[in-house]
Design a protein around this nucleic acid. Sequence first.
DNA 1: TAGCTGATTATGTAATACTTAATGACGGCT
DNA 2: AGCCGTCATTAAGTATTACATAATCAGCTA
Lengths: 231, 231
Amino acid sequence: MSIEKDLFKLKPIAYTTMADQVETHLREYIIKRSIKPGDPIPKETEIAQALGVSRNVVREALSRLRMLGMIESRKKRGMILTQPDVMKGLELIIHPTILDENVRKELFELRLVLEVGLGDLLFRRKSEEHLKKLDAIVEREQKATTQIERIRCEIDFHSTLYDMAGNETLKRFQDILMPVFEYVVEYESKLDHTSVGSVTHADLVKILYGNNSEAYPNAMRKHLMPHLEHL
Amino acid sequence: MSIEKDLFKLKPIAYTTMADQVETHLREYIIKRSIKPGDPIPKETEIAQALGVSRNVVREALSRLRMLGMIESRKKRGMILTQPDVMKGLELIIHPTILDENVRKELFELRLVLEVGLGDLLFRRKSEEHLKKLDAIVEREQKATTQIERIRCEIDFHSTLYDMAGNETLKRFQDILMPVFEYVVEYESKLDHTSVGSVTHADLVKILYGNNSEAYPNAMRKHLMPHLEHL
DNA sequence: TAGCTGATTATGTAATACTTAATGACGGCT
DNA sequence: AGCCGTCATTAAGTATTACATAATCAGCTA
């Protein structure tokens, strides 16, 4: 029995196809020649010939890089390297329903970590505009009558925080993960009935208006406490 | 002039190839039928015929999903859905040299955010083992004579923190981003000469040994202060 | 029963031909 | 001379065919 397990650990023998090899070849090519966005890369036929494979295989490899936004191709003009969106890859994989329970849970933990650690970016980049927007959301929330409206405010509030942080990559990260969060929260809400932490959104806004950046992390921790207790 | 800018905003007209369409088709297929890892998906020829495209195009789409680890294929057995590694996509894109300056900076900010927010995971999951390991690293660091050795300790210390957090996804995230961090730190170190925050690694370990999880976030903030000041 | 053999099946690879869009050059027109 | 339309060219996108390869199964034989 343990022998079998050991055998499995040897993994299904890393079988690499021609397309795989061409892909890594292209990556290396790009890196070694330090090709920059906008620079052209060789034609499909040239690559095929140079590597001694069919154009078909080359196209598979290129198709992958294209999906990740690493290259763009126009007819006749050939293909050029493009500045990829770092988070594109994440976006392509993350779909709540195909992720397994545990990974969803881990991603949600990641969110908690991010929001607690967000303080310094917020205090450095906050603006009147953002703070007013938060005020408006808090007000909307207090007037809200339905659960749906409250949840919408909850989402808006935290999204606005990410906006405030002034980090596009982080914001994008959050946008991609959002659907997963909603999924988890929905699950959690079946356990405890939307219990609220001892620090409210209004409290957080008050802190953000001030200058005491030390107060933020633990305030946010208290705000998120209901979630943290699930860990 | 403003007219030209407006024209550019119309974007390069979302030109979608057959492969793109087949790809999204497959994604929808998988999601709508709620196919689980291990389940088989139709044969290449079946897909091609069903969608009225050449097998070639289908293979390009499948090749993409395969790269992301969403499917696996064996000859004859056909293809099966697999549990993708969420961070695979990131790994495929992130290479320090092809990322632009600004993105690298943003990713580094992300790191700072993560480490400050890490506290709750650490206090919930810490173990004697991990703490002892941190002790050892601190000791090694204090005995270190070369700059290289100190940097190695720095990396080990923070990596161990991520281990301690007991979140595989987060750990993987950190592992992927690491090369970028090193890149940024190298850049930073040319500005100020590895100035150290007022809280040392030893101080952090002391806090982690204790029970006061409130102390962690601001301690880590002080530790990272030299970096934070660059924001 | 065990094991060999060959048929079958689905993916991997190659080769060819054609379509389409973008580019540029040529040549004619005002 | 400068503008414009036409046409050839180029490289990517798509389709088709053929074959290689590996895994699986069924059937046959010892």
